[in-house]
């Protein structure tokens, strides 16, 4: 039996890209949410958390409409010269970022809130600039939050199915990720391939979560007085 590795690499690439971009985007959002007292803080928190409760089909449906050639986002991407996003790897990254946003923002926000303003204030009395305070004080102290956020974003993107099925178009090497490949194998009764991929996913997910709990447990223990 020849084993098709392409969906595996594609999935890792998608999850890796999504996680990296989400950390860049999610950190300032989480920082702002942890610090602000603005009246619309709760509204923004709710928007960030939406993908947790919405069925993937809602996201998939709106993405299809919005990203279509005559949809609002589709017009924008076309005028920017990048064409339309559905059925492309870039489209999946975009969708995955929306889909996994709460998995990055919430752990980071919790970490920032637990930290409190004190460490940064102390650093400020030592004349550290805001950027310096953030990079050398806040980020290292919030390390467990960053670890949790990265692992959850990565794992959640690997486990994504509904949205990809709706806007992906099942193109090998472009949008045919693991979950879609498994679905395909099951539908076409190719159970050997389905078993391999499904068992691999199961083992991978278990290992990822166990590692996360182990590492986070160690970090919090080492921080106890």
């Amino acid at each position: 039996m020849t084993f098709d590795w392409q969906p595996v690499w594609l999935t890792l690439k998608l999850a890796g890209t999504t996680t990296l971009l989400l950390l860049i985007l999610g950190t300032p959002i989480a920082w702002w949410l942890a610090r602000t007292h603005a009246w619309y803080k709760q509204a923004l928190s709710a928007v960030v958390a939406l993908p947790l409760v919405l069925p993937p089909t809602v996201l998939g449906f709106y993405l299809l409409i919005m990203l279509a050639p005559d949809g609002p986002v589709g017009r924008l991407t076309q005028s920017l010269g990048i064409g339309t996003l559905p059925f492309t790897f870039e489209g999946l990254v975009f969708a995955s970022m929306l889909y996994s946003l709460p998995f990055v923002v919430q752990p980071l926000q919790n970490a920032f809130e637990a930290l409190g303003p004190r460490p940064a204030e102390v650093a400020a009395t030592l004349r550290a600039s805001p950027w310096d305070r953030f990079m050398t004080v806040v980020i290292p102290l919030a390390r467990p939050g960053f670890l949790t956020a990265s692992v959850l974003a990565f794992a959640h993107t690997v486990g994504e199915f509904g949205v990809v099925l709706m806007i992906g178009g099942n193109i090998p090497g472009e949008t045919r990720v693991l979950s879609v490949a498994i679905y395909d194998y099951v539908e076409t009764l190719e159970y050997d391939q389905a078993h391999l991929l499904a068992a691999g996913m199961l083992a991978f997910s278990f290992l990822v979560l166990m590692t996360l709990y182990l590492v986070n447990g160690r970090i919090s223990r080492s921080h106890q007085p």
Partner: peptide, 22 residues
């Protein structure tokens, strides 16, 4: 082949075309 997008059924295929995405 590189341009083909596959719907999981003819209903999804129709929807890809009807929304103008394909």
């Amino acid at each position: 082949t590189p341009k083909l997008v596959r719907g999981e059924s003819i209903a999804q295929t129709f929807q890809f075309v009807a929304t103008g995405n394909a």
